[in-house]
Design a protein around this nucleic acid. Structure first.
Lengths: 122, 122
DNA sequence: GCGCGGATGATAACGCGTTATCACCGGGAG
DNA sequence: CTCCCGGTGATAACGCGTTATCATCCGCGC
């Protein structure tokens, strides 16, 4: 479909960072390269469609993306800086709580609080 | 501050229904009363500020509200009709997975799938 | 070196949820 | 009955994340 020059730049940033990132966050992080916001969105959408990236929808308005290669994990959302972090592991046992006529396709565990930079260690 | 005539109508609808509801959903449900969308938002914001309602932010763009009196529980979000349902119980043990310099303030467990009406029982 | 075509970046346009505006209505006091 | 005033509803305006547009740039083939 295309041989974009900057898509992999975006994808590799997502691989190098800890936690899903929004288009806005990627743009800020790669600002020094002069990349435009339009290209960010193109790279993210292309990655999601090609299966390289996984879409992570967390509260807060903006869609986030992470490498699809990451193993099952969950997320921590900082109330201070609105940054999302990966959290390893998964407390299972929730699927039993669902009514029998509901079909479970997936789940997300979201932790809220303050990250280290925002006073979590204070 | 005010003695609104229709706020309690909104609040009692939220009490009677199962799961958090958005302004749009409340408007549809109370359409027969002729209530306007502006009043819905006024009632929801007033309820949230006065502590009667709790704000529930789930993926999908629109903020949802539920009675603050409800005990700790989690939510199921139907991929088909985008309706949210309450899920009793809570699989704990996640807080151990957090780095020690992070401060945990709360958590949300989100289940995805199809509700009974959308083919979950098929 | 030259020309072509896809990729890029700045920005306008869009969709949608929410909020502000404003004229109207309805109920209570006098 | 009349006046007054807060509550209400229709709708315009807003904010923001995302997408479309379009002129320009870059790399490759020739």
């Amino acid at each position: 479909m295309s041989s974009p020059r900057k898509h992999e730049e975006v994808w590799s940033y997502l691989t190098d960072t800890d936690g899903p990132r929004s288009a806005h966050e990627v743009h800020e992080a790669l600002e020094h390269t002069g990349i435009g916001i339009a290209t960010i969105y193109r790279a993210l959408n292309a990655g999601a469609e090609s299966g390289v990236l996984r879409v992570v929808e967390l509260p807060g308005g903006s869609t986030r993306y992470e490498p699809a290669s990451r193993a099952h994990h969950h997320h921590f959302l900082c109330d201070g800086c609105d940054t999302a972090f990966d959290v390893e592991g998964c407390a299972d046992g929730v699927r039993d709580l669902l009514p029998p006529d509901f079909q479970l396709n997936g789940h997300e565990i979201l932790l809220y609080g303050l990250c280290a930079d925002c006073g979590g260690a204070a």
